[in-house]
Design a protein around this nucleic acid. Structure first.
Lengths: 237, 237
DNA sequence: ATGCAATATTACATTTTGATGACAAATGTT
DNA sequence: AACATTTGTCATCAAAATGTAATATTGCAT
Protein backbone atom coordinates (compact mmCIF):
# COMPACT_ATOMS: atom_id res chain seq x y z
CA UNK A 1 0.00 0.00 0.00
CA UNK A 2 2.80 2.37 0.81
CA UNK A 3 4.00 4.09 -2.29
CA UNK A 4 7.62 3.11 -1.80
CA UNK A 5 8.47 -0.09 0.00
CA UNK A 6 10.83 0.28 2.91
CA UNK A 7 13.78 -2.05 2.97
CA UNK A 8 16.07 -2.78 5.86
CA UNK A 9 19.70 -3.46 5.02
CA UNK A 10 21.56 -5.49 7.61
CA UNK A 11 25.28 -5.79 7.07
CA UNK A 12 28.27 -5.13 9.27
CA UNK A 13 30.29 -3.49 6.50
CA UNK A 14 29.41 0.14 6.06
CA UNK A 15 30.64 0.14 2.47
CA UNK A 16 28.21 -2.57 1.50
CA UNK A 17 25.36 -0.92 3.32
CA UNK A 18 26.01 2.29 1.45
CA UNK A 19 26.35 0.61 -1.88
CA UNK A 20 23.09 -1.23 -1.47
CA UNK A 21 21.42 1.87 -0.11
CA UNK A 22 22.27 3.80 -3.21
CA UNK A 23 21.15 1.03 -5.48
CA UNK A 24 17.82 0.81 -3.72
CA UNK A 25 17.43 4.53 -3.74
CA UNK A 26 17.82 4.80 -7.46
CA UNK A 27 15.40 1.94 -7.87
CA UNK A 28 12.80 3.92 -5.95
CA UNK A 29 12.89 2.16 -2.61
CA UNK A 30 13.26 3.68 0.78
CA UNK A 31 15.81 2.00 2.98
CA UNK A 32 17.20 1.97 6.46
CA UNK A 33 20.24 0.20 7.79
CA UNK A 34 21.47 -1.81 10.73
CA UNK A 35 24.92 -3.15 11.40
CA UNK A 36 24.16 -5.70 14.07
CA UNK A 37 21.52 -8.32 14.56
CA UNK A 38 20.34 -6.52 17.62
CA UNK A 39 19.92 -3.20 15.83
CA UNK A 40 18.16 -4.99 13.06
CA UNK A 41 15.73 -6.66 15.37
CA UNK A 42 14.81 -3.43 17.05
CA UNK A 43 14.36 -1.74 13.72
CA UNK A 44 12.20 -4.52 12.40
CA UNK A 45 9.89 -4.39 15.36
CA UNK A 46 9.67 -0.62 15.29
CA UNK A 47 9.54 0.09 11.60
CA UNK A 48 8.09 -3.07 10.17
CA UNK A 49 10.03 -2.89 6.93
CA UNK A 50 8.51 -4.44 3.85
CA UNK A 51 11.58 -6.55 3.31
CA UNK A 52 14.86 -7.34 5.04
CA UNK A 53 18.19 -7.77 3.29
CA UNK A 54 20.20 -9.81 5.71
CA UNK A 55 23.87 -10.64 5.59
CA UNK A 56 24.24 -14.09 6.97
CA UNK A 57 27.86 -13.56 7.88
CA UNK A 58 27.17 -11.10 10.64
CA UNK A 59 29.79 -11.34 13.38
CA UNK A 60 29.01 -14.23 15.63
CA UNK A 61 26.95 -15.91 12.96
CA UNK A 62 23.99 -14.03 14.23
CA UNK A 63 22.57 -13.32 10.81
CA UNK A 64 21.20 -16.78 10.46
CA UNK A 65 20.05 -16.67 14.04
CA UNK A 66 18.12 -13.52 13.38
CA UNK A 67 16.48 -14.97 10.32
CA UNK A 68 15.41 -17.97 12.31
CA UNK A 69 14.04 -15.85 15.07
CA UNK A 70 12.12 -13.62 12.71
CA UNK A 71 10.55 -16.53 10.93
CA UNK A 72 9.62 -18.18 14.19
CA UNK A 73 7.92 -15.15 15.62
CA UNK A 74 4.37 -14.80 14.44
CA UNK A 75 4.64 -11.05 14.27
CA UNK A 76 7.56 -10.96 11.92
CA UNK A 77 7.17 -14.27 10.14
CA UNK A 78 5.70 -12.82 7.00
CA UNK A 79 8.23 -10.10 6.48
CA UNK A 80 10.18 -11.38 3.51
CA UNK A 81 13.90 -11.94 3.98
CA UNK A 82 16.57 -12.04 1.32
CA UNK A 83 19.86 -13.46 2.51
CA UNK A 84 23.16 -12.09 1.33
CA UNK A 85 25.63 -14.93 1.25
CA UNK A 86 29.28 -15.08 0.37
CA UNK A 87 29.85 -17.66 -2.30
CA UNK A 88 33.26 -18.66 -1.06
CA UNK A 89 32.69 -20.29 2.25
CA UNK A 90 29.72 -22.44 1.75
CA UNK A 91 30.98 -25.80 2.90
CA UNK A 92 30.72 -26.24 6.59
CA UNK A 93 28.64 -23.50 8.02
CA UNK A 94 26.03 -23.21 5.37
CA UNK A 95 24.23 -26.27 6.52
CA UNK A 96 21.06 -25.90 8.41
CA UNK A 97 20.55 -22.39 7.26
CA UNK A 98 17.41 -23.44 5.57
CA UNK A 99 15.21 -21.38 7.78
CA UNK A 100 12.54 -20.12 5.51
CA UNK A 101 14.09 -17.09 3.92
CA UNK A 102 12.52 -16.06 0.68
CA UNK A 103 15.51 -15.80 -1.57
CA UNK A 104 19.28 -15.65 -1.59
CA UNK A 105 21.72 -13.41 -3.32
CA UNK A 106 25.32 -14.44 -3.43
CA UNK A 107 28.06 -11.86 -3.17
CA UNK A 108 29.31 -10.35 -5.25
CA UNK A 109 26.08 -9.32 -6.87
CA UNK A 110 25.08 -6.65 -9.32
CA UNK A 111 22.72 -3.96 -8.11
CA UNK A 112 20.46 -4.86 -10.96
CA UNK A 113 20.20 -8.45 -9.85
CA UNK A 114 19.55 -7.43 -6.30
CA UNK A 115 16.79 -5.06 -7.28
CA UNK A 116 15.24 -7.60 -9.59
CA UNK A 117 15.13 -10.15 -6.82
CA UNK A 118 13.73 -7.70 -4.33
CA UNK A 119 10.97 -6.83 -6.72
CA UNK A 120 10.23 -10.46 -7.39
CA UNK A 121 9.99 -11.28 -3.72
CA UNK A 122 7.85 -8.27 -2.97
CA UNK A 123 5.56 -9.12 -5.81
CA UNK A 124 5.19 -12.62 -4.49
CA UNK A 125 4.48 -11.58 -0.96
CA UNK A 126 2.20 -8.64 -1.49
CA UNK A 127 0.45 -9.87 -4.57
CA UNK A 128 -1.47 -12.35 -2.50
CA UNK A 129 -3.46 -9.74 -0.68
CA UNK A 130 -6.73 -10.00 -2.43
CA UNK A 131 -8.24 -6.68 -3.13
CA UNK A 132 -11.92 -6.92 -2.98
CA UNK A 133 -14.08 -4.90 -5.29
CA UNK A 134 -15.70 -1.82 -3.80
CA UNK A 135 -19.15 -0.90 -4.86
CA UNK A 136 -21.26 2.19 -4.36
CA UNK A 137 -24.67 1.94 -5.96
CA UNK A 138 -23.88 0.96 -9.50
CA UNK A 139 -20.36 2.25 -9.41
CA UNK A 140 -17.88 -0.52 -8.92
CA UNK A 141 -14.13 -0.52 -8.64
CA UNK A 142 -12.30 -3.80 -8.98
CA UNK A 143 -8.61 -3.53 -8.15
CA UNK A 144 -7.87 -7.06 -9.31
CA UNK A 145 -8.93 -6.40 -12.87
CA UNK A 146 -8.07 -2.74 -12.55
CA UNK A 147 -11.43 -1.68 -13.78
CA UNK A 148 -14.10 0.83 -12.99
CA UNK A 149 -17.63 -0.09 -13.98
CA UNK A 150 -20.82 1.90 -14.01
CA UNK A 151 -23.91 -0.19 -14.52
CA UNK A 152 -21.67 -3.01 -15.67
CA UNK A 153 -20.04 -1.04 -18.41
CA UNK A 154 -16.40 -0.06 -18.20
CA UNK A 155 -15.52 3.56 -17.57
CA UNK A 156 -12.56 5.08 -19.36
CA UNK A 157 -10.12 7.10 -17.33
CA UNK A 158 -6.40 7.74 -17.03
CA UNK A 159 -4.21 6.10 -14.41
CA UNK A 160 -4.22 9.17 -12.19
CA UNK A 161 -7.97 9.40 -12.18
CA UNK A 162 -8.09 5.73 -11.36
CA UNK A 163 -5.84 6.19 -8.35
CA UNK A 164 -7.82 9.21 -7.32
CA UNK A 165 -11.10 7.36 -7.44
CA UNK A 166 -9.55 4.44 -5.66
CA UNK A 167 -8.45 6.71 -2.86
CA UNK A 168 -11.88 8.25 -2.57
CA UNK A 169 -13.74 4.98 -2.59
CA UNK A 170 -11.50 3.54 0.10
CA UNK A 171 -11.84 6.71 2.17
CA UNK A 172 -15.44 7.78 1.85
CA UNK A 173 -17.39 10.35 3.81
CA UNK A 174 -14.39 12.43 4.77
CA UNK A 175 -13.00 15.69 3.48
CA UNK A 176 -9.46 15.75 2.26
CA UNK A 177 -7.40 18.81 1.50
CA UNK A 178 -5.67 19.10 -1.83
CA UNK A 179 -2.38 18.58 -0.05
CA UNK A 180 -3.56 15.38 1.50
CA UNK A 181 -4.92 14.12 -1.77
CA UNK A 182 -1.61 14.84 -3.43
CA UNK A 183 0.20 12.83 -0.80
CA UNK A 184 -2.11 9.88 -1.20
CA UNK A 185 -2.48 9.83 -4.93
CA UNK A 186 0.79 11.19 -6.25
CA UNK A 187 3.09 10.18 -3.41
CA UNK A 188 4.60 12.07 -0.53
CA UNK A 189 7.64 13.50 -2.24
CA UNK A 190 6.08 14.99 -5.32
CA UNK A 191 5.37 18.64 -5.52
CA UNK A 192 2.61 19.84 -7.76
CA UNK A 193 0.54 22.94 -8.17
CA UNK A 194 -2.46 22.76 -5.91
CA UNK A 195 -4.74 23.41 -8.85
CA UNK A 196 -3.56 20.25 -10.54
CA UNK A 197 -5.75 18.31 -8.15
CA UNK A 198 -8.74 20.31 -9.33
CA UNK A 199 -8.02 19.44 -12.90
CA UNK A 200 -7.88 15.75 -12.18
CA UNK A 201 -10.99 15.94 -10.08
CA UNK A 202 -12.59 17.50 -13.10
CA UNK A 203 -11.40 14.75 -15.37
CA UNK A 204 -12.63 12.09 -13.01
CA UNK A 205 -16.02 13.74 -12.75
CA UNK A 206 -16.29 13.96 -16.47
CA UNK A 207 -15.46 10.30 -16.88
CA UNK A 208 -18.04 9.33 -14.31
CA UNK A 209 -20.82 11.57 -15.48
CA UNK A 210 -20.66 10.44 -19.07
CA UNK A 211 -20.84 6.83 -18.02
CA UNK A 212 -24.38 6.30 -16.87
CA UNK A 213 -27.26 5.36 -19.15
CA UNK A 214 -29.85 5.54 -16.44
CA UNK A 215 -29.36 9.21 -15.80
CA UNK A 216 -27.74 8.84 -12.43
CA UNK A 217 -24.82 11.19 -12.27
CA UNK A 218 -22.05 9.46 -10.41
CA UNK A 219 -19.84 12.50 -10.53
CA UNK A 220 -22.06 13.93 -7.80
CA UNK A 221 -20.41 11.50 -5.41
CA UNK A 222 -17.31 13.62 -5.55
CA UNK A 223 -18.24 16.72 -3.65
CA UNK A 224 -16.44 19.99 -3.43
CA UNK A 225 -16.07 21.31 0.06
CA UNK A 226 -15.40 24.96 -0.33
CA UNK A 227 -12.30 26.11 1.51
CA UNK A 228 -11.45 22.58 2.63
CA UNK A 229 -11.03 20.18 -0.23
CA UNK A 230 -13.04 17.28 -1.61
CA UNK A 231 -15.15 14.51 -0.25
CA UNK A 232 -16.50 11.25 -1.61
CA UNK A 233 -19.93 10.77 -0.17
CA UNK A 234 -23.20 9.07 -0.92
CA UNK A 235 -25.09 11.66 1.04
CA UNK A 236 -26.09 14.97 -0.40
CA UNK A 237 -24.09 18.06 0.39
CA UNK B 1 5.29 -26.36 -21.68
CA UNK B 2 8.91 -27.16 -22.33
CA UNK B 3 9.50 -30.03 -24.70
CA UNK B 4 11.83 -31.87 -22.33
CA UNK B 5 11.21 -31.74 -18.63
CA UNK B 6 13.92 -30.08 -16.65
CA UNK B 7 15.11 -31.94 -13.62
CA UNK B 8 17.16 -30.60 -10.77
CA UNK B 9 19.62 -32.98 -9.16
CA UNK B 10 20.57 -32.12 -5.61
CA UNK B 11 23.38 -34.15 -4.13
CA UNK B 12 26.60 -33.25 -2.40
CA UNK B 13 28.62 -35.94 -4.16
CA UNK B 14 29.78 -34.87 -7.57
CA UNK B 15 30.07 -38.46 -8.76
CA UNK B 16 26.42 -39.14 -8.09
CA UNK B 17 25.33 -35.91 -9.70
CA UNK B 18 27.25 -36.77 -12.82
CA UNK B 19 25.97 -40.28 -12.94
CA UNK B 20 22.38 -39.23 -12.63
CA UNK B 21 22.92 -36.40 -15.07
CA UNK B 22 24.09 -38.78 -17.72
CA UNK B 23 21.26 -41.16 -17.07
CA UNK B 24 18.70 -38.39 -17.41
CA UNK B 25 20.39 -37.09 -20.49
CA UNK B 26 20.14 -40.37 -22.31
CA UNK B 27 16.54 -40.64 -21.22
CA UNK B 28 15.81 -37.34 -22.90
CA UNK B 29 15.57 -35.05 -19.91
CA UNK B 30 17.34 -31.83 -19.34
CA UNK B 31 18.97 -31.47 -15.97
CA UNK B 32 20.79 -29.06 -13.75
CA UNK B 33 22.58 -29.67 -10.51
CA UNK B 34 23.10 -28.26 -7.07
CA UNK B 35 25.33 -29.47 -4.28
CA UNK B 36 23.83 -27.63 -1.34
CA UNK B 37 20.35 -26.91 -0.14
CA UNK B 38 21.05 -23.26 -0.66
CA UNK B 39 22.06 -23.62 -4.27
CA UNK B 40 19.12 -25.87 -4.82
CA UNK B 41 16.68 -23.39 -3.44
CA UNK B 42 17.98 -20.57 -5.56
CA UNK B 43 17.86 -22.77 -8.60
CA UNK B 44 14.30 -23.83 -7.88
CA UNK B 45 13.11 -20.29 -7.43
CA UNK B 46 14.77 -19.17 -10.62
CA UNK B 47 14.37 -22.08 -12.95
CA UNK B 48 11.28 -23.82 -11.71
CA UNK B 49 12.35 -27.31 -12.63
CA UNK B 50 9.66 -29.82 -13.45
CA UNK B 51 10.96 -32.17 -10.81
CA UNK B 52 13.56 -32.24 -8.07
CA UNK B 53 15.75 -35.19 -7.21
CA UNK B 54 16.76 -34.53 -3.67
CA UNK B 55 19.36 -36.34 -1.64
CA UNK B 56 18.07 -37.04 1.79
CA UNK B 57 21.50 -37.04 3.34
CA UNK B 58 22.71 -33.60 2.46
CA UNK B 59 25.26 -32.48 5.05
CA UNK B 60 23.48 -31.04 8.02
CA UNK B 61 20.31 -32.93 7.21
CA UNK B 62 19.09 -30.00 5.21
CA UNK B 63 17.69 -32.17 2.46
CA UNK B 64 14.56 -32.97 4.37
CA UNK B 65 14.41 -29.37 5.53
CA UNK B 66 14.45 -28.16 1.99
CA UNK B 67 11.74 -30.57 0.97
CA UNK B 68 9.56 -29.42 3.80
CA UNK B 69 9.99 -25.84 2.85
CA UNK B 70 9.34 -26.37 -0.81
CA UNK B 71 6.11 -28.08 -0.02
CA UNK B 72 5.08 -25.36 2.36
CA UNK B 73 5.66 -22.52 -0.05
CA UNK B 74 2.80 -22.12 -2.44
CA UNK B 75 5.02 -21.17 -5.30
CA UNK B 76 6.96 -24.40 -5.20
CA UNK B 77 4.45 -26.74 -3.61
CA UNK B 78 3.47 -28.47 -6.81
CA UNK B 79 6.95 -29.18 -8.02
CA UNK B 80 7.29 -32.92 -7.52
CA UNK B 81 10.14 -34.18 -5.36
CA UNK B 82 11.78 -37.55 -5.43
CA UNK B 83 13.95 -38.29 -2.44
CA UNK B 84 17.16 -40.19 -2.76
CA UNK B 85 17.76 -42.13 0.43
CA UNK B 86 20.74 -44.21 1.39
CA UNK B 87 19.10 -46.47 3.89
CA UNK B 88 15.96 -48.42 3.62
CA UNK B 89 14.88 -47.12 6.92
CA UNK B 90 11.20 -46.96 7.55
CA UNK B 91 11.66 -43.90 9.69
CA UNK B 92 12.85 -41.88 6.79
CA UNK B 93 9.94 -42.80 4.62
CA UNK B 94 7.41 -42.01 7.25
CA UNK B 95 9.03 -38.71 8.00
CA UNK B 96 9.28 -37.87 4.36
CA UNK B 97 5.73 -38.77 3.58
CA UNK B 98 4.77 -36.28 6.21
CA UNK B 99 6.53 -33.65 4.25
CA UNK B 100 4.68 -34.49 1.07
CA UNK B 101 7.46 -35.92 -1.02
CA UNK B 102 6.19 -37.66 -4.12
CA UNK B 103 8.40 -40.72 -4.21
CA UNK B 104 11.56 -42.36 -2.92
CA UNK B 105 14.45 -44.09 -4.54
CA UNK B 106 16.89 -45.91 -2.34
CA UNK B 107 20.57 -45.97 -3.13
CA UNK B 108 22.01 -47.81 -4.80
CA UNK B 109 19.58 -47.66 -7.69
CA UNK B 110 19.76 -48.48 -11.34
CA UNK B 111 19.44 -45.61 -13.78
CA UNK B 112 16.59 -47.45 -15.38
CA UNK B 113 14.66 -47.57 -12.14
CA UNK B 114 15.27 -43.93 -11.48
CA UNK B 115 14.07 -42.89 -14.90
CA UNK B 116 11.01 -45.05 -14.60
CA UNK B 117 10.07 -43.44 -11.34
CA UNK B 118 10.67 -39.97 -12.66
CA UNK B 119 8.41 -40.64 -15.57
CA UNK B 120 5.76 -42.06 -13.30
CA UNK B 121 5.83 -39.05 -11.04
CA UNK B 122 5.80 -36.63 -13.91
CA UNK B 123 2.90 -38.41 -15.49
CA UNK B 124 0.98 -38.25 -12.27
CA UNK B 125 1.66 -34.64 -11.55
CA UNK B 126 1.15 -33.22 -14.99
CA UNK B 127 -1.75 -35.46 -15.84
CA UNK B 128 -3.86 -34.11 -13.08
CA UNK B 129 -4.10 -30.43 -13.47
CA UNK B 130 -2.86 -29.15 -16.71
CA UNK B 131 -4.52 -31.40 -19.19
CA UNK B 132 -7.96 -29.95 -19.22
CA UNK B 133 -8.58 -27.78 -22.22
CA UNK B 134 -9.60 -24.22 -21.60
CA UNK B 135 -12.05 -22.63 -23.92
CA UNK B 136 -13.20 -19.07 -24.40
CA UNK B 137 -15.75 -18.67 -27.15
CA UNK B 138 -14.12 -20.38 -30.08
CA UNK B 139 -10.64 -20.04 -28.75
CA UNK B 140 -9.43 -23.25 -27.26
CA UNK B 141 -6.20 -24.16 -25.60
CA UNK B 142 -5.46 -27.81 -25.14
CA UNK B 143 -2.42 -28.39 -22.97
CA UNK B 144 -2.45 -32.09 -23.62
CA UNK B 145 -1.84 -31.72 -27.32
CA UNK B 146 -0.05 -28.42 -26.75
CA UNK B 147 -2.20 -26.69 -29.28
CA UNK B 148 -4.25 -23.58 -29.67
CA UNK B 149 -7.34 -23.72 -31.84
CA UNK B 150 -9.57 -21.01 -33.17
CA UNK B 151 -12.81 -22.26 -34.68
CA UNK B 152 -11.29 -25.73 -34.76
CA UNK B 153 -8.30 -24.73 -36.79
CA UNK B 154 -4.83 -24.68 -35.29
CA UNK B 155 -3.19 -21.35 -34.61
CA UNK B 156 0.52 -20.96 -35.23
CA UNK B 157 2.58 -19.33 -32.54
CA UNK B 158 5.98 -19.60 -30.91
CA UNK B 159 6.54 -21.32 -27.59
CA UNK B 160 6.71 -18.08 -25.69
CA UNK B 161 3.43 -16.89 -27.09
CA UNK B 162 1.92 -20.22 -26.15
CA UNK B 163 3.07 -19.90 -22.57
CA UNK B 164 1.87 -16.35 -22.51
CA UNK B 165 -1.56 -17.28 -23.74
CA UNK B 166 -1.65 -20.18 -21.35
CA UNK B 167 -0.91 -17.89 -18.47
CA UNK B 168 -3.59 -15.46 -19.54
CA UNK B 169 -6.24 -18.09 -20.07
CA UNK B 170 -5.58 -19.60 -16.69
CA UNK B 171 -5.63 -16.19 -15.04
CA UNK B 172 -8.42 -14.29 -16.70
CA UNK B 173 -10.03 -11.02 -15.69
CA UNK B 174 -7.04 -9.70 -13.83
CA UNK B 175 -4.37 -7.16 -14.65
CA UNK B 176 -0.79 -8.24 -14.53
CA UNK B 177 2.17 -5.93 -14.65
CA UNK B 178 4.90 -6.63 -17.14
CA UNK B 179 7.11 -7.69 -14.26
CA UNK B 180 4.54 -10.13 -13.08
CA UNK B 181 4.08 -11.56 -16.53
CA UNK B 182 7.82 -12.01 -16.81
CA UNK B 183 7.82 -13.95 -13.57
CA UNK B 184 5.08 -16.23 -14.73
CA UNK B 185 6.05 -16.75 -18.33
CA UNK B 186 9.82 -16.49 -18.33
CA UNK B 187 10.53 -17.47 -14.74
CA UNK B 188 11.44 -15.36 -11.76
CA UNK B 189 14.66 -13.43 -11.74
CA UNK B 190 15.19 -13.52 -15.44
CA UNK B 191 16.14 -10.07 -16.47
CA UNK B 192 14.54 -8.85 -19.65
CA UNK B 193 13.69 -5.48 -21.01
CA UNK B 194 10.20 -4.54 -19.94
CA UNK B 195 9.28 -3.85 -23.52
CA UNK B 196 10.01 -7.41 -24.48
CA UNK B 197 6.70 -8.34 -22.96
CA UNK B 198 5.02 -5.84 -25.26
CA UNK B 199 6.62 -7.42 -28.26
CA UNK B 200 5.41 -10.86 -27.36
CA UNK B 201 1.98 -9.55 -26.59
CA UNK B 202 2.03 -8.08 -30.05
CA UNK B 203 3.05 -11.38 -31.58
CA UNK B 204 0.37 -13.23 -29.71
CA UNK B 205 -2.25 -10.74 -30.80
CA UNK B 206 -1.16 -11.02 -34.37
CA UNK B 207 -1.38 -14.78 -34.27
CA UNK B 208 -4.84 -14.63 -32.77
CA UNK B 209 -6.28 -11.97 -34.98
CA UNK B 210 -5.27 -13.60 -38.20
CA UNK B 211 -6.83 -16.84 -37.12
CA UNK B 212 -10.54 -16.28 -37.31
CA UNK B 213 -12.62 -16.78 -40.44
CA UNK B 214 -15.80 -15.56 -38.86
CA UNK B 215 -14.53 -12.07 -38.27
CA UNK B 216 -14.29 -12.32 -34.52
CA UNK B 217 -11.05 -10.79 -33.43
CA UNK B 218 -9.70 -12.88 -30.62
CA UNK B 219 -6.79 -10.57 -30.07
CA UNK B 220 -9.26 -8.21 -28.41
CA UNK B 221 -9.31 -10.58 -25.47
CA UNK B 222 -5.86 -9.39 -24.58
CA UNK B 223 -6.39 -5.91 -23.30
CA UNK B 224 -3.86 -3.23 -22.61
CA UNK B 225 -4.32 -1.53 -19.29
CA UNK B 226 -2.43 1.69 -19.57
CA UNK B 227 -0.04 2.28 -16.72
CA UNK B 228 -0.75 -1.11 -15.22
CA UNK B 229 -0.09 -3.97 -17.61
CA UNK B 230 -2.25 -6.40 -19.53
CA UNK B 231 -5.43 -8.29 -18.91
CA UNK B 232 -7.16 -11.26 -20.51
CA UNK B 233 -10.83 -10.61 -20.40
CA UNK B 234 -14.02 -11.46 -22.21
CA UNK B 235 -15.61 -8.25 -21.15
CA UNK B 236 -15.19 -5.02 -22.98
CA UNK B 237 -12.66 -2.48 -21.77
C1' DA C 1 -27.02 42.66 -7.19
C1' DT C 2 -21.82 43.23 -6.57
C1' DG C 3 -17.28 42.01 -5.88
C1' DC C 4 -14.17 38.66 -4.50
C1' DA C 5 -12.18 34.48 -3.65
C1' DA C 6 -12.51 29.68 -4.62
C1' DT C 7 -13.30 26.34 -7.89
C1' DA C 8 -14.17 24.59 -12.74
C1' DT C 9 -12.92 24.26 -17.33
C1' DT C 10 -10.22 24.68 -21.34
C1' DA C 11 -6.28 24.62 -24.14
C1' DC C 12 -1.78 23.32 -24.86
C1' DA C 13 3.23 21.99 -24.54
C1' DT C 14 5.57 18.30 -22.75
C1' DT C 15 6.31 13.80 -21.13
C1' DT C 16 5.00 8.91 -20.83
C1' DT C 17 3.55 4.99 -22.59
C1' DG C 18 2.48 1.39 -25.87
C1' DA C 19 2.54 -0.71 -30.75
C1' DT C 20 5.21 -2.25 -34.36
C1' DG C 21 8.75 -3.27 -37.85
C1' DA C 22 13.59 -4.28 -38.36
C1' DC C 23 17.51 -6.70 -36.95
C1' DA C 24 20.90 -9.78 -35.01
C1' DA C 25 21.83 -13.42 -31.90
C1' DA C 26 20.47 -17.83 -30.41
C1' DT C 27 18.31 -22.01 -31.27
C1' DG C 28 16.47 -25.75 -33.69
C1' DT C 29 15.97 -28.50 -38.19
C1' DT C 30 17.06 -30.59 -42.35
C1' DA D 1 26.69 -26.72 -43.05
C1' DA D 2 22.68 -24.35 -44.73
C1' DC D 3 18.43 -22.92 -43.53
C1' DA D 4 14.41 -21.67 -40.86
C1' DT D 5 12.40 -20.30 -36.58
C1' DT D 6 12.33 -18.09 -32.41
C1' DT D 7 13.95 -14.58 -29.33
C1' DG D 8 15.19 -10.29 -27.23
C1' DT D 9 16.38 -5.50 -28.10
C1' DC D 10 16.04 -1.23 -30.21
C1' DA D 11 14.34 2.79 -32.90
C1' DT D 12 10.44 4.99 -34.38
C1' DC D 13 5.82 6.40 -34.60
C1' DA D 14 1.27 7.27 -32.65
C1' DA D 15 -1.61 7.81 -28.89
C1' DA D 16 -2.60 8.92 -24.32
C1' DA D 17 -1.73 11.16 -20.16
C1' DT D 18 0.06 14.89 -17.52
C1' DG D 19 0.83 19.38 -15.34
C1' DT D 20 0.31 24.22 -15.89
C1' DA D 21 -1.41 28.54 -16.96
C1' DA D 22 -5.13 31.17 -18.80
C1' DT D 23 -9.91 31.88 -18.68
C1' DA D 24 -14.62 31.06 -17.15
C1' DT D 25 -17.81 30.11 -13.67
C1' DT D 26 -19.64 29.61 -9.19
C1' DG D 27 -20.78 30.49 -4.35
C1' DC D 28 -21.01 33.51 -0.82
C1' DA D 29 -20.73 37.63 2.22
C1' DT D 30 -22.02 42.04 2.04
Amino acid sequence: MTPEPNILIVDDEAAIRDMIGIALDTAGFRSSTASTALDAHVNIIDQRPDLVLLDWMLPGGSGIELARRLKRDELTANIPIIMLTAKTSEDNKVQGLDVGVDDYVTKPFSPRELVARIKAVLRRSTGNLKDKPIRVFDLEMDPASHRVMVEDRAVEMGPTEYRLLNFFMTHPEKVYSRDHIQDQVWGANVYLEERTVDVHIGRLRKALSSASKTGINYSALIQTVRGAGYRFSTRHD
